[in-house]
Design a protein around this nucleic acid. Structure first.
Length: 574
RNA sequence: CGGGGCGUAGCGCAGCCUGGUAGCGCAUCUGCUUUGGGAGCAGAGGGCCGGAGGUUCGAAUCCUCUCGCCCCGACCA
């Protein structure tokens, strides 16, 4: 491909809307342009990257026995009403009405459509297992799209759905997908972690998220260097705290005045106690009728994880109560709540249980209690659970080694769905005895554009993108520095032809531009290998090869350049 | 949804407070020079100042409404 013919408008300056690196470079390198909030056009260079990723996905999905289909993006409301999600999905579902007044939605996912397809055409256990996937545009009307294609509203996603006769088969399908995903992201050249994840509203027994490790990630994960355990914080398991070998004797509770001090840190400083000796009491709304408000407790230096709490309570979503509810339930303004005397249900984090002579709120303005001992002083019926946010250095649930925290970008998510959709939509097959059985389903997604963005987050420098070879839009860029010098152009073109014939996907910067411009653009768009052809080099029969990611440069004989490139491609291909 | 910010040429911005009919840098086009890290000089094109209404002799500028975009926040007691 000739640079002069390529629709590749690069930008010297970053458009003001971009905040994160991947977004900035995707705009500057001419990969995407914004049309509306969270909606982007993909330009030729961007399309080449997406196709690379898609093809890796296809190869690995096919290898894992899945078959590609292509489902409609516009889906009738009837199916969504049948699954119960027409009402449940809320405002993220973009609803449209056709000229006859029939309701449709733009598919944010395709469980309904695929389940409908399969239930109509699969009748026998002999047809299972079945795994169907597609790469399709999805639309989710996010409250706040941001970071370019990282959290867009319209985006391309690979979604796969597995159908099995029984649990065992479903597990096999799940494991096959997990293996395929690992292969996909490895081949894309990404550093990633498959972490245990929350199943959220979808339910089911297990779920893994594939996280590309990057500081700009929106998700936090805990991971153990020693044994490899890794989980989304929302799903993190924390072991019980060590029992103190020689606990101090329990002293009598006592109220102390803490005028105007509600926050743990302030009270701790005032009482000259460590925040680890505090018990924090938070009031949450549950949305449940039988217990609309719940008190959640954790150690002073810990935090409550809302998702873990919601799971412990058994509600859809737990959010902090407002001031009015706090006063109503505790009798004191925000900052002075404590478990003793509370009449609402109390859920306490496991790490609070064996605290001794701790400090907590007294449910009175400007008062705290010292020497509280949970087993002795907490209300009858207090529930104990793992509801807190992990912190750096927490022990691993598998091997007890200290764990670390990291930020990640969720590029893939795999779920065991169980019979959620096969039940609501009556997707059954006949087993060997001729009895109807619910199909056991799984679903598996990969964000294609997000994978590209994540690759940039992980592979860039001040000059621009450094594409991993496997997903680079071109593998090599030729930079003839003197477009007017026939000898230089001849050499560059001859190398270009040879690379092209070897399938090495070269791009040649044939523009009549200054060397600096070509270097800057080449670095920005991040082609992994650069071949620099200059006047002096040509006179000596040499060309220069530069590896974008490392900056490594080497002078090679012109005749041997294509061979060298081929060798480098072979060596650096993951 | 709440809060903050911004809409002026393809991109980055100034002008607005204190109304007088739009400017800078980059990019684009032409010519000459230059040519291994975003060249220099000379010239040129390109904007109903997001939109609507109002105030005024006169509005990018003041007022009202509206649309769009970006960022922050779901309260850690």
């Amino acid at each position: 491909m000739k640079f002069s013919r390529l629709f590749l408008p690069t930008l010297k300056e970053t458009p003001s809307e971009a905040e994160v690196v991947s977004h900035k470079y995707m705009l500057r390198a001419g990969l995407i342009r914004k049309l509306a909030a969270g909606i982007y056009s993909v330009m030729p260079l961007g399309v080449r990257v997406l196709r690379k990723i898609e093809n890796i996905i296809r190869e690995e999905m096919n290898r894992a026995g899945a078959q590609e289909v292509f489902l409609p993006s516009i889906q009738p409301s009837e199916l969504w009403k049948e699954s119960g999600r027409w009402d449940f999905y809320g405002k993220e579902l973009l609803r449209v009405t056709d000229r006859h007044g029939r309701e449709f939605c733009y598919g944010p996912t395709a469980e309904e459509v695929i389940t409908d397809l399969v239930r109509n055409d699969v009748r026998s256990y002999r047809d299972l297992p079945l795994n169907l996937y597609q790469i399709q545009t999805k639309f989710r009307d996010e409250i706040r799209p941001r970071f370019g294609v990282m959290r867009g509203r319209e985006f391309s996603m690979k979604d796969a759905y597995s159908f099995d006769m029984d649990e065992e088969g479903a597990n096999e399908s799940y494991q096959a997908m997990k293996k395929a995903y690992e292969a996909i992201f490895r081949r894309c050249g990404l550093r990633f972690s498959a972490v245990e994840a929350d199943t959220g509203q979808i339910g089911g027994s297990s779920s893994h998220e594939f996280m590309v490790l990057a500081d700009s990630g929106e998700d936090t994960i805990v991971h153990c260097e020693k044994c490899g355990y890794a989980a989304n914080v929302e799903r993190s398991r924390l072991p019980l705290p060590p029992t103190p070998a020689d606990p101090a004797p329990h002293m009598a509770m006592e109220e102390v005045s803490t005028p105007g001090l509600g926050a743990v840190e302030d009270v701790a400083a005032f009482l000259k106690r460590d925040s680890t000796e505090f018990i924090k009491t938070l009031i949450f709304k549950t949305g449940l009728e039988e217990r609309p408000l719940v008190a959640a407790l954790c150690r002073g230096d810990h935090g409550i994880n809302h998702v873990k709490l919601a799971r412990a309570i058994g509600c859809a979503e737990a959010s902090l109560a407002d001031e009015v509810d706090v006063i109503k339930t505790t009798g004191a303004p925000v900052g002075f709540a404590g478990a003793p005397g509370l009449t609402i249900p109390v859920v306490a984090d496991n790490w609070v249980r064996n605290m001794v002579n701790a400090v907590t709120g007294a449910n009175k303005v400007d008062m705290h209690i010292v020497n509280i001992n949970p087993e002795r002083d907490f209300p009858e019926g207090t529930e104990w659970a793992d509801i807190r946010q992990p912190i750096e250095g927490d022990p691993c649930p598998e091997c007890a080694a200290a764990m670390g925290l990291a930020k990640g970008i969720e590029v893939g998510h795999i779920f065991k769905l169980g019979t959620k959709y096969s039940e609501s939509m009556r997707a059954t097959v006949l087993d060997a005895e001729g009895k109807e059985q619910m199909m056991i389903m799984g679903c598996f997604g990969i964000g294609v554009g997000r994978t590209a963005a994540a690759a940039i987050e992980q592979n860039h420098d001040e000059a621009g993108i450094m594409w991993p070879l496997a997903i680079a839009p071109f593998k090599v860029i030729l930079l003839p520095l003197n477009a007017n010098d026939e000898a230089v152009m001849d050499v560059a073109e001859s190398i270009y032809r040879q690379l092209d014939e070897s399938g090495l996907e070269p791009l040649i910067d044939d523009r009549d531009a200054r060397a600096g411009v070509k270097f800057k653009d080449a670095d920005l768009i991040g082609i992994p290998l650069q071949v620099i052809v200059g006047k002096k080099g040509v006179e000596q029969g040499k060309a220069e090869i530069k590896i974008r990611a490392t900056g490594e440069k080497m002078m090679v004989d012109i005749a041997e350049t294509p061979g060298h490139i081929a060798e480098l491609v072979r060596k650096h291909a993951p």
